[in-house]
Amino acid sequence: MSAESDRTTGTIPEWKREEVDEIVEFLQRYDSVGVVDVTGIPSRQLQDMRRELHGTAALRISRNTLIALALEEIEEGLEELVEHVAGQVGLIGTNDNPFGLYQQLEASKTPAPINAGETAPDDVVIPGGDTGIDPGPFVGDLQQVGANARIEGGSIKVVEDSTVLSAGEEVSADLSNVLSELGIEPKEVGLDLRSVHSEGVLFAPAELDIDVEAYHADLEAAAAAGHTLSIDAGYPTARTGPVLLSQAAGDAKAVGVSAAVESPSLTDDLVSTADAPAAGRRRRRDGPPDEKHRPGALP
């Protein structure tokens, strides 16, 4: 390390101070800032993720101690993220809302092979069916890891869906090789959001994991219920005003007809109402209009 890089400002080496300053600038640039887990993501794939995020979010990787210093330096609630700065992590910043950020990160995750020694995130299942692999030692490998397999019709077949590892268990070298041979990728690789701070609120991933379509449907149902309630209560708004006026006009017309109020706008209704009893008597006297023309009717 050069003499210049050894210079310190207070108790922090100058290069670290500069790095912290850059992280602080990064944090101040965005409305929403979160901590993401980057464990197990190959560097090439990490670069691809940076490119995919370009324009909507930005990723910053640094030493955990320096990230923590920057978060504590800014305060404004961001220091609450420090407890999530552990292991292989990075910072992510966006001017989008945290719900949009979470959805984007989840959508960007891709299936990946699982290596020996890793922990299975979910149950690992080898599906039943023809593997397309010619008879050979591989049938024994399948049986060794717990799959119900046999040779049938000139190929190796898995008789039924076989759960070969439970979530939380460690993957063996044998199982990793079998899964690789079958092309099974039982894990997802991507940026896991640990927590995000936005507008003074700290969000956990579980709070951001919402069904957007269901949420929209709930909003539409609530709006419809509110609209109906407003009309029933006679509460005028820009949306309910025309409906209330139409109802009031209808009610006023009904009262006017019932009270036989003479008005040009009610003339037709009053005549129709007055003629209704006579029209009924005529129908009873004459029968249906086509009664005389019905086959077999008396002359």
Rank of each mutant, 00 (worst) to 15 (best):
A107L: 04
P111L: 01
G132M: 11
L81D: 11
G87P: 09
Q88E: 11
Q144G: 05
V85L: 05
P137Y: 08
N95R: 09
I114S: 07
L101S: 05
Y102A: 10
L142I: 09
G140V: 04
G129H: 08
V158P: 07
D96C: 15
G154D: 07
R150K: 14
I133E: 01
G154Q: 06
P135I: 03
P121V: 01
E152Q: 14
A116G: 11
Q88K: 11
I114M: 11
P127C: 05
T94K: 07
A120S: 03
E80A: 08
E160I: 06
A149L: 07
P127S: 06
E118P: 01
I92V: 14
K109W: 05
A112F: 00
V124M: 10
N97L: 08
D96L: 15
G132N: 05
I151L: 11
E152F: 05
G154A: 11
T94H: 00
E118A: 13
D96Y: 12
P127R: 09
P111H: 08
D141W: 04
G93W: 00
G90W: 01
K157R: 10
A147H: 03
D134M: 07
Q104V: 13
G90K: 12
D141C: 07
Y102W: 14
A149F: 01
G146V: 04
F99H: 15
G100Q: 10
S155C: 03
V159M: 14
P127E: 08
A147M: 12
P111S: 14
V158L: 04
K109I: 06
P111R: 10
A149R: 00
E152G: 06
G146N: 13
N115W: 07
A147D: 14
E80D: 15
I114T: 01
V139G: 10
I92P: 02
G146I: 10
N95F: 00
P135H: 09
L142E: 13
P127K: 14
S155P: 13
G100A: 14
E79L: 11
V158F: 01
G136C: 09
G136Q: 08
P113D: 03
I114E: 12
K157V: 10
A107R: 09
P137M: 11
G117M: 04
E106T: 14
A147E: 13
D96R: 15
I156F: 04
T119P: 12
G90D: 03
K157M: 15
G93A: 12
A120G: 08
N97R: 09
S108C: 07
P135W: 05
K109Y: 00
G100R: 13
L105P: 00
G132A: 06
A86G: 14
V124N: 04
L101I: 13
L101Y: 00
L105I: 13
G140N: 10
P113R: 04
N95S: 14
P137A: 04
F138M: 14
E160S: 15
P98I: 09
I133K: 08
G93I: 13
P111G: 01
E80F: 13
A147L: 02
G153V: 01
G140F: 12
H84A: 13
G136T: 02
S155T: 15
P121W: 03
L105M: 09
N97S: 12
V158G: 03
G146T: 07
L81S: 10
P98C: 12
V159D: 12
N97E: 11
A107Y: 12
A112R: 04
T119L: 07
G90A: 15
E79C: 03
A107H: 06
G87Y: 01
P113Q: 02
T94G: 07
E160W: 09
E83V: 15
D141Y: 08
V125E: 05
R150I: 09
